[in-house]
Amino acid sequence: MDFLGLMLVGILVGLTTVLFGFGGGFVAVPIITLVDADLGSDTARVAAATSALVMLVNAIIATVSTKRETLSHLRGRWWLLILLAIGGMLGAFGGRFAPEAFLQWGFVVYIAITAVDLLARPGFFRPGSRVKEGVGEGGRGISAAWGVPIGGLASFLGVGGSVMTVPMMRRSGATMTVATTLANPLTLVIMSPAVLVTITAPASIGAPGIVGSLDLYSAAALLVGAIPVIVVLRRRVPKIPELVHAWGYFILLITAGVVVALA
């Protein structure tokens, strides 16, 4: 895929960042998996690392552009943020040594389990019994105890934290808009140490445009397409009905898993 083609995909990355809080992970991983398929056993590692870089930059832009009243839902959640960062660092470090097949199929299995969970348990598409009356649009939040597991899995597979944080915030009573918006600052916290681990790792893949485990050429093209979309849409977030928003999240989740499985 040429630079222009990756830029067009970057527009989709920007849309998913704003609308679903994915930060690009569920688009970037499948696309990089296809683009760098000729790297063989290193493909999944490069896809995860490059996705982490794309998500980090997108999360920074999206967070800076987010309304302060929305970000206020994270006020006082320092332990959660600290543990997410620790998990992100540990997951990225572990990803350096994991077999390629484990990373690829781990991504697919992770998405499959999440999809089944979203359909089987109440609270994502329909109100759950634990969502009490009087809970604000930000819900009750995520327990800090989940920080390391969320951060570790997100950076290990390069998917970002939204696949866990969005459903968890939904079940705590948050609206889709708030849950997907807050997924960006949470992704920022996870991916900052993850990218640091990645770029300081010794270069091991000899291919044009690859630095360490990062495909900088593809990352640059995706970001050129994504950043303008994020800046424009984050200031004027589209109004989407809750149920449509939730099903859109689910469909994109399944699509990403299928693409990686087939690649």
Rank of each mutant, 00 (worst) to 15 (best):
M7C: 15
T16Q: 08
T17K: 05
G23A: 02
G25R: 15
G25K: 11
I31R: 04
V35C: 07
S41L: 05
V54K: 08
M55Q: 00
V57N: 04
I60F: 07
S65I: 09
K67P: 09
L71H: 07
H73T: 06
R77P: 06
W79M: 14
L83K: 15
G88W: 07
G95M: 05
A101E: 15
F107K: 13
Y110L: 14
A112M: 13
A112D: 07
I113E: 13
T114W: 09
T114C: 12
D117W: 09
R121A: 01
R121W: 08
G123T: 11
R126P: 06
R126A: 12
G134N: 12
V148N: 01
V159D: 15
V163D: 15
V166A: 03
P167V: 10
L182R: 00
A183C: 02
A183T: 09
N184M: 11
P185G: 05
V189H: 11
V189T: 09
L196Q: 14
T200G: 11
A201N: 13
P202I: 12
S204L: 06
S204D: 11
G206A: 15
G212T: 15
D215E: 02
L216M: 05
A220K: 13
A221S: 07
I227S: 06
V231S: 03
P238W: 05
I240H: 10
P241V: 00
A246D: 02
W247L: 01
L253G: 01
I254D: 04
L262T: 08
